[in-house]
Simulated scan of single mutants.
Amino acid sequence: MLKVKNLYHSYTKDDNYAVKGISFEIKKGEIFGFLGPNGAGKSTTQKILTGLLPLQKGEASIAGIDVKKPTEKLFNLIGVSFEHPNIYSKLTGYENLEFYKKLFSVPTEDPKVLLKMVGLEDAVNKKAGDYSKGMKQRLVFARSLINNPQLWFLDEPISGLDPTTASNIKDIIKKKKDEGTTIFLTTHNMHIADELCDRVAFINEGKIEVIDSPRNLKLKYGEQLVKVEYKENNKLKRERLSLINDKDRDKLNKLVNEGKIETIHSQEATLEEIFIKVTGRGLK
């Protein structure tokens, strides 16, 4: 669905590149996470692929259409939910979506259905400028679905949302994937990436460091650990034991055989821990 090869971009139009020769492909129906800290090159890449920045160097295509030569067909295929809401403040939520759907030459979704989907059914006729920050974000999210996109770009889709709303947004993303939508998710939130993504790319300082599934990354870079709580001399002790280290494994077996364990939980490395291990830096 999406192919990128040796993509470069310089805001100063010299050798100071914000994106440095990145290459990747996204298959149809896949959720692909583009993960990295602020300033890593995530938004630059997304802006190039959605036509907001010119493609300076390299190749990129969506469904076989050259991004360097965008057509109406290309824009009919994609939807974009921006992290920072860009809406018409003097129009109502409904009017924002009604206006936007007229920009497409393909069948579109019912604005009221989309607004209800993101929990804005009671604010349909309210001016968007009077929406809270979270409501504006949900409005932009709903707007990105108006043309039923085949390739859906999501930039920090749950940032700043309360847990209940964030859970609803994640459910919508999962549902669209099940319907065959290809999703390009840019985020520095490793938890949502771990929950939603089929594969992820770690991008740091304009370069892709690694691409793989969250599971494979955990198996390759993480440690196999268990966290146990056990009683010893009437005192509760907590310990992390390796399932690979012989000494730790022997101790775990002893605790099990003696019936001292009160709780036991498997522990795996988080994507954030793996990102730090791979890139040598955190996500801030």
Rank of each mutant, 00 (worst) to 15 (best):
H188T: 13
R143P: 10
E109I: 02
T181K: 15
D110P: 09
Q150A: 07
T181R: 14
E205W: 03
V106M: 03
P107C: 00
I146F: 08
L161C: 10
E179T: 13
T182C: 05
K133S: 13
A166M: 06
F153Y: 12
L161G: 10
D178R: 15
L120D: 06
F184L: 03
S167W: 04
C197G: 12
K175W: 13
D155T: 01
D122E: 15
I203G: 06
R143H: 10
L145M: 12
D122K: 15
T186H: 03
L151N: 06
R199C: 07
L115W: 06
I172T: 05
Q150D: 12
K101N: 10
N125I: 12
N189T: 01
V106I: 13
E109H: 05
R138C: 11
H191I: 08
V124W: 06
G180Q: 08
V113P: 00
E109S: 12
I158P: 05
A201F: 01
L115F: 06
A201S: 01
E121C: 04
D122V: 00
D155L: 08
G160H: 04
F104M: 01
I158A: 01
D198V: 05
T165V: 15
F202W: 04
I208K: 00
V140E: 15
W152C: 03
E205S: 11
K136T: 14
V118C: 03
K112I: 02
G160E: 12
Y100Q: 13
I173M: 11
K101E: 13
A142Y: 03
S144G: 06
S144I: 02
G206A: 14
A201E: 02
F104K: 05
M117N: 11
K126P: 00
I158E: 05
S132L: 01
M190N: 11
E109C: 08
L154C: 00
G160D: 08
I169Q: 07
D194F: 02
E205F: 10
M135S: 11
N168W: 01
P157K: 07
V113I: 13
T187K: 07
T182G: 11
V113G: 02
H188E: 11
T165D: 09
P107Q: 14
L154G: 00
K126W: 01
M117S: 12
E205V: 04
L154N: 05
N148G: 06
P107A: 14
F202H: 06
D198N: 11
S105M: 02
T187R: 05
T186S: 15
G180I: 10
K127G: 09
K127I: 15
V106R: 04
L196N: 10
F141C: 13
F153T: 02
M117E: 13
P157Y: 03
F141E: 12
A123V: 13
N204W: 00
V124Y: 04
K112W: 00
T187C: 01
E156H: 14
A201I: 07
D171E: 15
R138D: 13
V118P: 09
I146W: 02
L196V: 12
L103K: 00
K175E: 15
A142K: 05
I169C: 03
L185C: 05
G206M: 10
N204K: 04
I183R: 12
K126F: 01
Y131A: 10
C197K: 05
P111R: 05
K127E: 15
P163H: 02
D122L: 13
M135K: 06
G134I: 01
R143Y: 04
L120Y: 03
M117D: 03
K133Q: 14
I172S: 10
K126T: 14
M117I: 01
